[in-house]
Design a protein around this nucleic acid. Structure first.
Lengths: 100, 100
DNA sequence: CAGGTATTTAGAAAAGTTTCTAAATAGAAA
DNA sequence: TTTCTATTTAGAAACTTTTCTAAATACCTG
């Protein structure tokens, strides 16, 4: 997984809204687009970024393309965040704990 | 907390590197800058974005400004991610589970 | 106070992102 | 096969972000 692509993908509010729409299951590109005041081309651009970041997967049925969440990349991102959970001040501090 | 500011702040690799540098304790703006091939002005710009997003806090000592991680915002972001943990396909699916 | 170091602010250039319209593709239905 | 619907691709315009240089601020040391 490429962190850069994943975080960039998550940095846009339209794309985070799309992910929230998908958390209860698959939706087609058209169904997703109905919720936004944007052209289908723009939604397609956002979906392509989510797909490149592997945050969603697509599947085809008739002439629809369905999108759904790909949980595994979310798990890897969560793991990245865990490193900031516990902070160790004072001991490794460059100024020997002099300030505050 | 403003999600938009937080996710935008996390979307830049320089800012994520700064956060990783800070996970063992405080560092001054100058100490942070030494690790990058960028002017101090650019580092200052990145620090201002991390500060606005409340991902870091600053404290002054002599004529240095020290930066450190602010854990609470990380916790809120982690919470946002948990909603994507369990996916419920088939039941709420707009196409009645016809595809795949 | 004068000179020095650390950091920020302002403004501009360069690079990247988001959105649009118009055209292309692909598959379904008639 | 022709036409229709769903979606994507291409190219351009508008906007945002990142970086730089130069100048400003702020605080420390002698």
């Amino acid at each position: 997984m490429a962190f850069q692509e994943t975080f960039k993908a998550l940095s846009d509010p339209v794309r985070r809204d799309i992910l929230e729409m998908l958390k209860n299951g698959k939706l087609s590109a058209g169904e997703i687009g109905q919720k936004f005041e944007m052209t289908g081309a723009t939604i397609s651009y956002h979906l392509s970024i989510l797909k490149k970041a592997e945050l969603v997967r697509e599947s085809k049925f008739k002439n629809f393309i369905y999108y759904e969440i790909n949980t595994s990349v979310f798990e890897e991102i969560m793991l990245w965040f865990t490193q900031f959970g516990k902070i160790n001040n004072e001991t490794t501090n460059s100024n020997g704990g002099k300030n505050e």
